[in-house]
Amino acid sequence: MTKLKLALCQMNVIDDKEENLMKASSMITAGSKNADFIVLPEMFNCPYSNDKFIEYGEAENDSYTLNIISKLAKSNQVYILAGSIPEKENDELYNTSYLFNQKGEIIAKHRKMHLFDIDVKDKITFKESDVLTAGNDFTIAQTDFGKIGIGICYDIRFPELARIMVENGALMLFYPGAFNMTTGPAHWELLFRARALDNQVYCIGVAPALNENASYHSFGHSIVANPWGEIIAEADQEEEIVYCEIDLDEIKKVREELPLLKNKREDLYEVLKK
């Protein structure tokens, strides 16, 4: 199967878990009528705020959120990449993404590896490491459409991670994210085009919609970039479902025309997965 229909659910996230899950459920149900693979944003059940990460945190083995997503994946017979949620394990808290297959089974999970600790003078300061623990595992999952790689938001800024996932067979790179109104206009589109172009894969990002009443303002602009580095689908800032069909045969075509991965000088350098 070479063609894949995506539904990017750019939902408005508020300070009400039940309302967020109702919104996610309605968008998944709507999206599944026209797509094989549904993607939710980073922290889709939770406001993007350190205190809310603590408040909304759930353990995987009895997660109310994950139970709902599992049932939706099974009932709609679609893959769902459940953006991310605050995941509790013992005394640690992680920013974790879960991939469900059409049977509602979790087939992969990714804990955000690079925590968002930034201080842009007079614009934005945020320090995820105050409450979150970084993950240490690369995440490459096998699907009916081939292998995919999963990162979360800030992870996309580190090209070594993308290259390792591609070296391990990933044809699509997914980064649920929540860039802000400072970093988003400057870097969001550039980073997705760059990771797609560098690795000659599809690169997909799904963000929350802009909620001006929240303490953290998401840039939105959920996006799909193709192996040539072109944007083939993109939202604005409002809540919407973005549909996009991708053809995985395009990866082979681009790699034959511009054989970057073959032309690497591995006698001089290589990226290793530890």
Rank of each mutant, 00 (worst) to 15 (best):
Lys109Glu: 15
Asp144Arg: 08
Met165Ala: 08
Asn95Met: 12
Ala141Ser: 04
Gly83Thr: 05
Leu173Phe: 07
Glu167Asp: 15
Phe145Tyr: 14
Lys88Ser: 10
Val131Phe: 10
Ala141His: 03
Asp91Ser: 13
Ala141Val: 01
Phe145Thr: 05
Asn136Thr: 15
Ala134Ile: 08
Lys103Val: 07
Leu161Trp: 09
Asp155Arg: 03
Glu160His: 10
Ile148Asp: 06
Asp119Ala: 08
Leu171Gly: 15
Phe100Ile: 00
Ala134Pro: 12
Glu167Thr: 05
Asn168Val: 05
Asn101Cys: 08
Ile106Trp: 05
Met165Cys: 04
Ile164Ser: 07
Leu93Thr: 08
Ala82Leu: 00
Arg157Trp: 11
Thr96Ala: 10
Met172Gly: 05
Glu167Pro: 04
Asp137Met: 10
Asp137Phe: 05
Asp130Arg: 11
Asp130Ala: 14
Asn168Lys: 10
Lys112Arg: 11
Leu115Asn: 07
Asp144Ala: 11
Ile150Ala: 03
Ala141Lys: 01
Ile107Pro: 05
Ile152Gln: 01
Met113Val: 01
Ser129Trp: 09
Asn90Glu: 14
Gly149Val: 03
Ile118Val: 13
Leu93Phe: 11
Ser84His: 11
Leu115Pro: 03
Gly149Asn: 03
Phe100Met: 06
Val131Cys: 14
Val166Ile: 10
Phe145Trp: 15
Ala82His: 06
Phe100Ser: 02
Lys147Gln: 02
Lys123Arg: 13
Lys127Gln: 09
Gly104Glu: 01
Gly135Ser: 02
Glu87Arg: 03
Asp137Pro: 04
Tyr154Ile: 07
Thr125Asn: 12
Asp91Arg: 04
Asn101Ile: 00
Ala162Tyr: 06
Asp122Ile: 00
Ile164Met: 15
Phe145Met: 01
Ile118Gln: 00
Gly151Asn: 02
Gly83Ile: 08
Gly151Asp: 01
Tyr154Lys: 10
Phe158Cys: 07
Lys147Leu: 04
Ile106Gly: 03
Gly169Pro: 08
Glu160Gln: 14
Cys153Val: 04
His114Leu: 10
Tyr94Lys: 06
Gln142Ser: 11
Glu128Asp: 15
Glu167Ser: 11
Asn90Ile: 01
Thr96Val: 14
Glu89Tyr: 13
Pro159Val: 07
Pro159Glu: 15
Ala162Leu: 09
Ser84Lys: 11
Tyr98Trp: 00
Lys109Arg: 15
Leu173Trp: 02
Ala170Val: 02
Glu167His: 13
Ala108Glu: 14
Leu161Ser: 12
Cys153Asp: 10
Glu160Lys: 13
Ile106Arg: 00
Asn168Leu: 03
Val166Pro: 04
Ile152Cys: 04
Glu128Ile: 09
Glu160Trp: 08
Glu128Gly: 05
Gly83Ser: 06
Tyr154Thr: 12
Lys123Gly: 04
